[in-house]
C-alpha cells in the first residue's frame, strides 16, 4: 500500500528531482533555444543568449540549403523503417514458432540469436566493408538497411517472443478448431492480438536504427548518409556555427525523442531481453 506522504515532503522531492532532471535535459533544451537564434546571438554568453531579442527560423533554412537536409532525413527514415519492417517480416514467423510450438531447441536458438548481438561490430568491419565494396553496396540505402536488419533481428525476435508468450495458446487452438488455416490463424487471430506488442517492438527498433552510428558512419558517404552521418559532417569547422548546428541537431533528434517518450516501458523490456521486468 502506498502511504500518504505530506505535501511538504513531496515538494522537497519534486524540487530535488526536478533540478536534476532539468540538468540532464538542459543540453537538449539549450540547442532548442539556440536553433531559433541568429549565429551572432548564439555565441554570446548564456544569459545574454536567453535575453537577446532575435528569434528566427533562418537556421533551419540554412541547414537545408547547405547540404540538403531532407535527403539525409529521408535516408534515415528509409533505412530505419525499412530495416525494422524487414526485420519484423523475418522475425514474426520465427517468434511465432518459438512461442507457440516450442521444442527442446527453442531456448538454445533464442540464446544463440542473442549471442550474435554480442559480436562487436568492429570485429567484422573489414569483411563487411570489403563485401560491400565488391558488391556495390557501399554508400547505398539497400546495403545499410540489410546490415541494420541483421543487427537488430535478435532484438526483434526476442521482443516479439516475449509478447507472443503472453497470448494464451488456447485462443490459437480455438481458431484451429473453428476451421482457421495456419495463415488465417496468424492473420485474423494472432496478428490483431499482438499488434500492441508489435507496435512497440517496431518503435524501439526504429529508434535503435535511427541512432545507429557505427555502420552508418563507416559504410556511407554523401549519397546514402542518414542523419547520424550528416551531423558528423558538422564536426568541424561548421561546428562553430552554433545556430545551424543546433537546428540540424534538433531536426535530427526530434522525431526519435517523441517516439522514445512513447516507448519508455518497452525500452526496458527490449534492451534487457526480459532479464529485468
Amino acid at each position: 500500500m502506498a502511504r500518504a506522504v505530506s505535501t511538504k515532503q513531496k515538494s522537497i522531492n519534486t524540487a530535488i528531482a526536478g533540478t536534476l532532471g532539468f540538468l540532464m535535459f538542459f543540453p537538449i533544451l539549450w540547442i532548442l533555444i539556440l536553433s531559433f537564434k541568429t549565429e551572432e546571438d548564439a555565441i554570446r554568453a548564456p544569459l545574454e543568449v536567453l535575453f537577446s531579442s532575435g528569434w528566427t527560423l533562418d537556421s533551419f533554412g540554412a541547414v537545408q540549403a547547405r547540404s540538403d537536409y531532407f535527403k539525409h532525413f529521408s535516408n534515415s527514415v528509409i533505412i530505419s523503417v525499412g530495416s525494422t519492417v524487414l526485420g519484423l517480416l523475418i522475425a514474426i514467423p520465427a517468434a511465432w514458432s518459438m512461442a507457440f510450438v516450442p521444442s527442446r531447441h527453442t531456448k538454445n536458438i533464442l540464446m544463440w540469436m542473442l549471442s550474435t548481438k554480442m559480436l562487436p561490430p568492429v570485429g567484422v568491419l573489414v569483411p563487411i566493408y570489403l563485401i560491400f565494396r565488391d558488391t556495390g553496396l557501399l554508400d547505398s540505402r539497400t546495403g545499410l538497411t540489410i546490415v541494420l536488419t541483421l543487427m537488430n533481428l535478435p532484438i526483434i525476435v526476442w521482443m516479439l517472443y516475449t509478447y507472443f508468450k503472453e497470448i494464451p495458446g488456447e485462443i490459437l487452438e480455438a481458431a484451429r478448431m473453428d476451421g482457421a488455416s495456419l495463415r488465417e490463424e496468424v492473420l485474423y487471430v494472432l496478428t490483431p492480438m499482438a499488434i500492441p506488442g508489435m507496435a512497440s517492438t517496431m518503435l524501439l527498433n526504429i529508434i535503435l536504427a535511427w541512432n545507429e552510428a557505427f555502420w552508418t558512419l563507416n559504410l556511407t558517404a554523401a549519397k546514402a548518409a542518414p542523419l547520424t552521418a550528416f551531423i558528423a559532417s558538422y564536426s568541424s569547422p561548421e561546428g562553430l556555427f552554433y545556430a545551424k548546428l543546433s537546428a540540424a541537431s534538433i531536426m535530427a533528434i526530434a522525431p526519435i525523442l517523441i517516439m522514445g517518450w512513447f516507448s519508455q516501458k518497452q525500452l526496458v523490456r527490449g534492451l534487457t531481453f526480459g532479464a529485468v521486468k
Partner: peptide
C-alpha cells in the same frame, strides 16, 4: 467438432 475451452479462448479483439 466444436470445442469450448477452459479459459473460453474468446478472441479479445
Amino acid at each position: 467438432l466444436a470445442m469450448v475451452f477452459q479459459s473460453y479462448a474468446l478472441y479479445p479483439h
